[in-house]
Design a protein around this nucleic acid. Structure first.
Lengths: 336, 336
DNA sequence: CTGAAAGCGCTTACAG
DNA sequence: CTGAAAGCGCTTACAG
């Protein structure tokens, strides 16, 4: 069964395709006779006509499509972002095409290519490490895009991110204020700026409070081997003459593995060890000591990213906007 | 900066666009002189040419795109499915466009329309209640699609789903075998077949074991008011002369609310009450009594759905396939 | 080995 | 108020 086209309707009604197009798109309203308008509309419905967006896109050079690349759609943080972006895009009649990079530059580039080839009108991206060149490429090609969650400080692009330094600083300060002195952090070993900011905020809070920053109090783990390295890090923190009293985790995934291990070691939270983590997950809601965490303004991040992007799509000469949003420290039982 | 087209390359090299197309698509290999081939490839790279998929799609009538509608991408079960489908699609060079229906028929229809207008080659769908007519429509329009997670028993379509009856039966039987007699279930009040199957499996397991099915032992809650109604249901189960000894939950969301409430009431699991739930979420990993649950074969479901769909896209006369997969009961501390 | 040409289904400036 | 026509960027059957 062949799909019905404008031409079919035009033939059925006995007018030109131009007229059908005008009527169905509500162009030239009032300048087309009512009788013809009605007939065309009726025929379109009767024949179950649906616009071929591909054809329209080719002509108009607009697809009404936003390409989205996140780290991993199965991660609650990414999924929440995807959801918000989907809803925001829908409000403006845009559809989302997505892909998960898995923090892998090769994969990222592959998805990026696919999105560009599909003529996405704009892109919302969480680039992985080593993607600087590709971001610059995008700029050069004048493809509208907004970075989300992370950015490259050396490259002047629009972005919407958390103030990771501040969030980390505040979380650490909270631990200090609660009386903890030996505070460790487990973070990703990554060149990504937003992750480094988390480490930097942690360290600054310590020095700021005249607590010497012991070098081995910041342990870095690789995403590729996250469980083993996180467990080793926890082990490290707990052994030795001056075990840590509190821990800050650089992400929900790290926290998950660490808490499971801490649980397994029969340590009591917060009596034996206090805990704070980045990201909110309901994974911790049922833990006997729900984790104090840094809640990211996911809704706002997603909505702003879409808005910035659409401004950019509309007018390519719009100024670059860089938005750094505040996190919110949600204090719960793990640090009281 | 205008995007470069085949024409531009043709002009630069001094050949026809046809030739450029052949070379770049590796058609007519060996039948084009090596010199020209090289020149064209070099120019394409030098000019940073990228295929305009929209134009290609218009001509070939293929977009290499799969439309995906799930209930809510922010729900871990949906997110996991989305991820698997994305990966499977990618293997075959397909890209995914998605939307969340929120179990809302209007929203579902809107997303469906958008996906069809965008000429998705095929669709993977989790239809909400009352979407029968739209499913039939799809069949009539001969649009390739595969249902996932749920289907309408009255309509003969391809699908990949869990054997919900069996899973629920086994979960209940497990509770019975563990010695529980007064077993309740909280499920969604929904006309969706897969959810009703869960209730049916529960009831069958009881009667099968000569346990009378007390009517109020199956409590139904509405998704729109899930927290309140779930808490009321739990309250109901616990009050009265014969409080329930064990509970089966029809979904991860229901379980989440119920467990929080049970926790809040200071009941001990499983001493005071044993628990089993559908779906696996790491939300329960940190609970002191990790929940026994029915694990859905998400990976397999997603992969099979993509494979069925692609068969269908390739050959529209391919037979309808209906796959019902087994869940796996993962026994953990909540029922021991 | 290569090219001219038609056509996918739309939109839209132009003409009447 | 309406239509003829060009063209978006590709692919591909056909001809030479």
């Amino acid at each position: 069964m062949k799909k019905v086209s404008l031409k079919d309707i035009a033939a059925a009604v006995g007018v030109s395709t131009a007229l059908v197009s005008y009527v169905l798109n509500n162009k030239k309203e009032g300048r087309i006779s009512k009788a013809v308008t009605e007939k065309i509309r009726a025929a379109a419905i009767a024949m179950n006509y649906r616009t071929n967006q591909i054809a329209r896109s080719l002509k108009t050079n607009k697809t009404n499509t936003i390409g989205l690349i996140l780290a991993d759609i199965a991660n609650p943080f990414s999924a929440a972002l995807a959801r918000v972006i989907e809803d925001a895009a829908d409000k403006y009649n845009y559809t989302v095409i997505f892909g998960s990079s898995d923090e892998n530059p090769e994969k990222y580039r592959k998805i990026l290519d696919a999105l560009i080839n599909r003529q996405a009108d704009g892109l919302i991206l969480s680039p992985p490490e080593h993607a600087e060149a590709q971001v610059k490429d995008l700029q050069q090609q004048q493809i509208p895009f907004v970075l989300i969650d992370r950015y490259f400080p050396g490259i002047d692009t629009s972005y919407v991110v958390l103030d990771n330094y501040k969030a980390s600083f505040e979380a650490t300060a909270h631990l200090i204020a609660a009386g903890y002195k030996r505070i460790g952090m487990i973070n990703y070993a990554s060149s990504l700026f937003h992750l480094q900011e988390r480490s930097r905020g942690y360290q600054a809070a310590l020095t700021n409070n005249k607590i010497s920053v012991k070098k081995n109090y910041l342990q870095l783990v690789h995403a590729s081997n996250i469980k083993e390295e996180t467990e080793a890090a926890v082990e490290n923190f707990l052994s030795g003459p001056a075990p840590v009293e509190a821990l800050l985790f650089g992400s929900n995934i790290i926290a998950m593995h660490a808490v499971k291990y801490i649980n397994h070691k029969k340590l009591k939270v917060p009596a034996d060890i206090a805990l704070v983590c980045f990201d909110e997950t309901d994974a911790f809601d049922l833990f006997y000591a729900p984790l104090t965490c840094i809640k990211q303004p996911v809704k706002k991040m997603g909505e702003l990213a879409v808005e910035l992007l659409l401004e950019n799509i509309k007018d390519s000469h719009v100024k670059i906007k860089q938005l750094t949003l505040d996190g919110e420290l949600i204090v719960r039982a793990s640090t009281i």
